[in-house]
Amino acid sequence: MGRVMDQVMDAIDLETVLACRDVEEGRGMILELMKELGFHDVDVVFIQHEGPGVRVRARAYIHRSGDKYGWLEVRDK
């Protein structure tokens, strides 16, 4: 994990619109995208399908409570 990622206090949200047929397809697509971007601890916070696609916000937790936080210059071994 790079230095900038260390400075993320807890989570990164990615919000976008994906062209797709329904919520399930959109959910699969956003989770795939988050994995492609290299995130592991991911979830979909909000997703709603209307007409052409989904408005979706996915989240990747970089630091969860109880982890060792990069922004305190402490890293997990």
Partner: peptide, 13 residues
């Protein structure tokens, strides 16, 4: 704004 989200901890943003 995470009030209704139950999948993980509330985030600072």
């Amino acid at each position: 704004s995470d009030e209704a989200y139950s999948g993980g901890p509330i985030s600072v943003p």
